[in-house]
């Protein structure tokens, strides 16, 4: 029973990271029909932002040495700025492009950003020490829960709730949802496309920044491709959740998180290293069963 609960908490915390990433990806997909590969770079650059830029093998903390609240704010600001700037430079000129072109553009952007990161910081992974006190465990009855897992789950809950409130209650939130439903109609009714898209990019930047810090605290290691596995998982999470649905993206994230932990537990040791392959196979299986994802969105199916 205890191990079951332990695994459950692992699953929720891993699923939280996936869900946050998937929400960031899903937000832009909803509004722009853009699958943003560069989200991986947002996460990576957010993590690298806490050290002094250099190619040295030893990382020196800069922003990371500040008080945690200031550090988090700084990282959020940096990643949001990056997200908005890429929107302005790359995606605004491509406003009329079709989804496959956008997809390729974001792939190219991700490739360029990844090698820029490599040029500035060098390709070798660097160990950093942030939030090492988060590794401590809290005893709840006989359960040992690392503080980091509690923090991850709490931050995710807070972000999901505030995102939901933002989308439901505020003017820009309502505009984003309107744009996701039918962009052209929304524009006819006076929604400003550039503003809505910029806000969506900024929001995905906030989510990416949160993932940067939580993931970095988990691994303690900076690497130029660190955001990639998360974003690949997030892509499949948005697909199995149902493309274009934010609830679907979050659900998809948790589904994949749970599947990973369950597979980790039930797979025999000798094939455990293939776990991720099974996760992706599961994704294909879900798609066979429900080609439009778990939560279907009417706006996404093309009308004649």
């Amino acid at each position: 029973m205890i191990t079951l609960l332990q695994n459950f908490i692992d699953a929720v915390s891993l699923g939280s990271l996936y869900a946050l990433t998937a929400l960031g990806v899903g937000l832009l997909f909803g509004v722009l029909r853009l699958i943003n590969f560069a989200h991986a770079n947002f996460i990576t650059i957010g993590a690298y932002a806490i050290i002094v830029p250099s190619t040295n093998a030893i990382a020196t903390l800069y922003i990371g040495a500040w008080h945690w609240a200031v550090m988090s704010t700084a990282v959020v600001v940096i990643v949001v700025a990056l997200a908005v700037v890429t929107e302005f430079i790359v995606f605004r000129p491509l406003r009329r492009a079709d989804p496959p072109t956008l997809l390729v553009a974001s792939f190219a952007l991700a490739y360029a950003l990844q090698y820029i990161t490599l040029l500035i910081y060098d390709g070798r992974p660097k160990a950093v020490d942030i939030g090492s006190n988060l590794a401590e465990q809290v005893m709840v009855g006989e359960l040992r829960i690392p503080k980091l897992e509690i923090l991850t789950i709490a931050v995710t809950l807070a972000l999901i709730v505030s995102l939901a409130l933002f989308l439901k209650r505020t003017r820009y939130g309502i505009q984003i949802r309107a744009a996701a439903e039918d962009f052209r109609m929304a524009r006819l009714l006076g929604v400003r496309a550039n503003t809505v898209i910029a806000v969506a990019f900024a929001l995905s930047g906030v989510l990416a920044a949160a993932v940067s810090l939580l993931f970095l605290a988990r691994t303690g290691m900076l690497a130029p491709r660190m955001g990639l596995p998360l974003v690949l998982i997030a892509f499949v999470a948005t697909v199995i959740g149902g493309m274009g649905s934010l609830v679907g993206a979050a659900v998809g994230g948790f589904v994949v998180g749970f599947a990973s932990v369950v597979l980790q537990v039930v797979l025999p040791v000798e094939i455990r290293q293939f776990r991720d392959a099974f996760v992706y196979l599961l994704v294909i299986a879900i798609l066979l069963w429900r080609p439009a994802g778990l939560i279907q969105v009417r706006a996404i199916t093309e009308r004649v």
């Binding site: 699958i35 499949v236 697909v239």
Partner: peptide, 21 residues
């Protein structure tokens, strides 16, 4: 059988599976 964008993502899953295996 998937639609365009979902198919693209699923092909990504294929790349990941082959790479992991």
């Amino acid at each position: 059988r998937l639609s365009g964008i979902a198919a693209s993502i699923a092909t990504f899953a294929v790349l990941a599976i082959v790479n992991v295996v």
